[in-house]
Amino acid sequence: MSRLRTGTTAPALPAADAAGAPLPPVPPGGLTHLQFRRFAGCPICNLHLRGFAVRHPELRAAGVREVVAFHSPADELRPYAAGLPFPLLADPERRLYRAYGVERGARALLDPRVWPSIVLGVLSGVPQVLRGRERLPSARPAGGRLGLPADFLIDADGQLLAAHYGTHAADHWPVARVLALATEHRPATEPTPATAPEPEPAAAGPDPD
């Protein structure tokens, strides 16, 4: 799969999310942060998305529409969508993943940098499962466990402004990075036309005799 380059047109997104609801529109002059996650119930993904849910008002205020894709079927993904303030896309056939060049491989879990995130994701997810707010992932998730994350920032016209392809399962943009990119790529406001200076009053001539 070939990776996308910034400055090109991003592949179109599906019209509806995993629940069958239409995707929310991009705010006027706003941006879309499209992130590719792994499988439904992935502990690393759940931990990551909880952080985005908490700070979602900041993202909206910055004009960012958040959209998250999983390589899980819709029926597996829908229970995890409850309580999240942004849409989840179900892509079990990985069509969108291929279109965006999102990869998978053993390095997703074998890279030592991901291990702390796995432990933290599991430990933080246990209370959520006990409270009935989350479910345990499938023992054999659709699409496997070797997916790699990716992040894309897209403007309202569909142009790809920034892209990040993860090198392991926890290599993704944090909220702060998305907000910084939104500030960097925010459309410049139109300058106020300069007001022409008023003409100086004509100098008075000499008094006639």
Rank of each mutant, 00 (worst) to 15 (best):
R5D: 11
T6R: 15
T6L: 09
A19S: 08
P22D: 12
L23V: 01
P28I: 08
L31P: 05
T32E: 10
H33G: 02
L34D: 02
C42G: 00
A53N: 14
R55N: 13
H56C: 11
Y80N: 00
A81I: 04
A82H: 10
A82R: 15
A82Q: 12
L84H: 07
P85E: 15
F86Y: 09
L89M: 05
E93Q: 07
R94H: 02
R94I: 00
L96P: 11
Y97V: 00
R98H: 13
G101M: 11
G105W: 07
A108L: 01
L109T: 01
L110M: 05
L110E: 10
P112A: 03
P112M: 04
P112Q: 06
V126P: 03
P127N: 11
Q128S: 10
V129L: 08
V129D: 14
R131Y: 02
P141M: 06
A142Y: 12
G144C: 05
L148F: 05
L148Y: 00
A150F: 07
F152I: 02
I154D: 04
D155F: 04
G158T: 09
Q159V: 01
Y165C: 03
G166M: 02
G166D: 13
H168N: 09
D171V: 03
V175N: 14
V178M: 14
V178H: 14
L179M: 01
A180H: 09
A182V: 01
P187L: 13
P197K: 03
E198K: 14
E200V: 03
D209H: 03
